[in-house]
Amino acid sequence: MFLLCQQSGVQIAATFRSGIVSAAGYEAVASAVGERSEGPMGSALNRSETFGNPAVDGVYERMYLAILEHRLPPGTKLPEENLATIFEVSRTKIRQVLARLEHEKLVEAIPNRGCFIAQPTVSEATDTLAARRIIEPGIVRALATRVQADHLARLRAHVDDEYAAAAAGDDPATIRLAGEFHNVLAECAGNSALARFLHELAALTSLTILLYEAPIARSCLPDDHLHLVEALEAGDGETAANIMHRHLQAVQDSLVFDHTERTVDLEAIFGHAPAS
């Protein structure tokens, strides 16, 4: 079961739907959180999986956050030469980042055409959300039995940031914080494998929401996150699990499986990074 958590969300949900692994089996995986204690990732990049080069780590983190904040829409072409110029690193370093993003299903490499931000199909989009509905209720159910004061403080501070971003009309921050809340839950649960898994799913979900035009106000509400934190504080795992399941189902229900392509300017998104 541990190995299943390291597959992409699409692979996991597809395996589940094929009947190879039961829902109870996935619940067992999610309920195993907390058996290994890991500190929070602290950024978009899991510190146990850095490239060992601050410049490359920085490029990866900025590109991941651009995906999470809907600044890099699905289908965006990612020319190595342009990115190398923008970030002021070698094309070799850009290839490392693109390979990592491709492994995480966030970038698609097309022979003789180059790399593009992934465009999840309807099936992939529903598979990703199905995987999250299987795993995340188990995460919060388990977390409710062992939640600590510092976890609650971190989660409440995060929700406060979500409300502040929404009140300020800062859509990129609102979108990013909504996705990161789920990553923070996995980190608080203390299972590094599930934290990595949700790190990938958060960005895949962001692409899905952008591609299929789910309105921000309906796709991930801070109110749901606040109620979830309140259930965790009360030690009520069942209520927390129900809120999570309903919350993720609402995200899927808000999708409209049609989209319009748009063009983007990579330099306008990233600007020029300081020389490394």
Rank of each mutant, 00 (worst) to 15 (best):
M63C: 01
M63V: 03
A66V: 07
I20P: 00
I67H: 03
R36F: 11
L45P: 05
Q11H: 06
A44M: 12
V56A: 15
E61F: 03
E61T: 13
G39Q: 13
E69R: 15
I67R: 01
T15W: 02
A23N: 09
P74N: 08
P54A: 12
Y26M: 12
G58R: 07
E61G: 11
P40N: 03
E27F: 05
R36W: 08
L65S: 08
L83P: 03
I12F: 04
L68I: 14
S31K: 12
F87T: 01
Q11S: 12
E49Y: 12
A13P: 02
P73H: 09
N53Q: 12
V59K: 02
A66L: 11
V29L: 11
V21K: 12
V33S: 06
V56I: 15
L45Q: 10
I20D: 01
E49N: 13
N82F: 00
F16C: 08
S90Q: 05
G19M: 01
A32W: 05
V10H: 03
A13C: 09
P73L: 14
G9R: 05
T50P: 11
G75L: 08
S18H: 00
T50L: 10
I67W: 04
N82S: 07
M63A: 06
E61M: 14
A28V: 07
P79L: 05
A84N: 10
F87S: 00
Y64C: 08
G39K: 08
H70V: 12
E80V: 03
F51A: 13
S43K: 15
I20S: 03
R71C: 08
T92M: 05
L65W: 09
Y60A: 13
N82W: 00
G19H: 02
G9L: 07
T76E: 03
G34N: 04
S31N: 13
N53E: 14
M41D: 11
L83C: 10
P79A: 06
R62F: 02
L65F: 10
G42A: 13
I20H: 01
A84I: 10
G19A: 06
I12D: 00
V29Q: 06
R91Y: 11
T92E: 06
R47L: 14
A66M: 06
A24S: 06
R71L: 12
Y26N: 02
L83A: 05
F51D: 10
V10S: 09
Y26I: 14
A23C: 09
S43A: 15
D57H: 07
E61V: 13
A55F: 01
L45V: 15
A14D: 02
F87N: 00
A32D: 11
G19F: 04
S37W: 11
G9D: 09
V33H: 01
V56L: 11
Q11T: 14
L45H: 08
G25W: 07
F51Y: 15
A44P: 02
V56S: 15
S90M: 05
A13N: 03
T92P: 00
L72A: 10
R71Q: 15
R17H: 08
P79S: 11
E49R: 14
I86S: 01
G52N: 06
I12S: 00
E27Y: 03
E35Y: 13
L45A: 07
N53G: 05
T76N: 03
S37R: 15
V33D: 02
R36P: 04
S48M: 14
A84L: 11
P79N: 11
L45D: 06
E81H: 05
P74W: 07
L68C: 14
